[in-house]
Amino acid sequence: MLEKTDDADDAPRPEAATPADRALRESTLVVRAQDGDVASFERLVRSYEKELLRLGYRMLTDIGEAQDAVQDSLVLAWRRLPTLKDPQAFHAWVYQLMTRQCLNLLRARKRRRTSLTHEGDVGHDPHRSAGVEADPPSAAAQTSALGAGLDVALTTLPAELRACWVLKELHHLSYPEIAYAIGVPVATVRGRIARARLHLARGMSEWR
């Protein structure tokens, strides 16, 4: 083996791959995007678009509304990026933007439903709220009774509980990350997830 005699030989070699294709740490992309680098922001958007859409679908049960919410959240992310102090916190932060967007939409739906109900137009049906028809579950979910049971039980869970449960079990956020995303103490998140599990387990027992 050759001995290295010159320090300059230890300098990392420029890579053969196109730099634009290079995998970069998420925090680096975040810092670059904060610095005004749109290409880095685009890479962040690509890596989060689908994830956030899955969250939106489980929160809103409407794919079109979820797509709108993702778009609004990511534009908001670009605008608010300079205010994010810790680039490592981007993951929880972008989930926070999307979760809040969904919760706001659900509150607006509820208000619409309440005003319509007062006029006697719409009955109380958790699957149909103020003109929003839930998209049917995927074919795969319908093939299993348990899957269908969870699908339905989840739609009947109050929004705040559903948000906590979805972030924990479908997106694997930690308790502190969920607390940050929703803006409540960790103890509240724990309590909500315990209640969500109870509600879901009970709901699903009817499908066995």
């Binding site: 348990l146 899957g147 049971g149 699908d151 079990e169 479908l170 387990a201 699903m204």
Partner: peptide, 10 residues
Amino acid sequence: GLASATTAMV
């Protein structure tokens, strides 16, 4: 049941 349905849902 919830555990297996959750894994399947993901």
